[in-house]
Design a protein around this nucleic acid. Structure first.
Lengths: 109, 109
DNA sequence: CTTTCGTATCGTAATATTACGATGGATAAT
DNA sequence: ATTATCCATCGTAATATTACGATACGAAAG
């Protein structure tokens, strides 16, 4: 056991959960916030910024890349990362949609 | 190793990651969507709704309760769950804020 | 009081995530 | 050509998550 039973849920539910999972680590939040703040390609200084080992940082970057949230291009010796604005927008819309369709009266419990 | 190094990150970053983690499973998304759709106390039928074992469902409910997203009240034999509108709103605001402060030009990579 | 029903919790197995050292590959500098 | 730098990947250990059966617990019904 232990494996998520994805077949029990709708495609949309699995998708939202996957997107949330991409954000479910402070290091990845930190990376995203840093890239957003810089609003540009960021080369190199991500490892220094985070305080995690280089291998660990690379692993988190890979997950964000797999999620589509960031993209990296090789720039000589360095690799430069930035936000993928298209996917970023998708996340924004999806989470906003998820939280919107509530009727927050709370008149029951 | 393997434990998240929470002390490396800001309080806000850890908080966002924790909130995302609460959403990072399709069963929990399904529970939340169901509660939102019903917009009322839901007693009992959650186990049938999900298709997971009773123990597993209870475990997910507990995590959502810990995250504050839902609240449960004992109603005789049953326990009734509903969205906690206050915390729901907090999530909505926080995620909207997180995704808003991007400048999605993407003019670099 | 005993039984039944709905949940929570415990124990545990399977799997996933997180973290890091070590290694390798590519490019720039010497 | 050799060296240095940056980054990805591999291997692996520590920890966390997911899932379920078994059991416990409390309230209502008999």
């Amino acid at each position: 056991m232990g494996a998520t039973k994805a077949d029990l849920f709708t495609k949309q539910q699995n998708e939202i959960a996957l997107m949330a999972k991409a954000l479910a680590h402070p290091a990845r939040i930190a990376i995203l916030q840093y890239l957003v703040k810089k609003n540009a390609c960021v080369c190199g200084d991500l490892v220094d910024e985070l305080g995690l080992a280089q291998a660990t940082t690379s692993q988190h970057l890979k997950e964000l890349k797999t999620a589509g949230l960031i993209q990296g291009t090789i720039e000589g010796v360095n690799v430069c990362y930035c936000i993928n604005p298209k996917v970023w927008k998708q996340y924004q819309v999806l989470f906003a949609g998820f939280f919107k369709d509530v009727a927050p009266d709370g008149s029951c419990c």
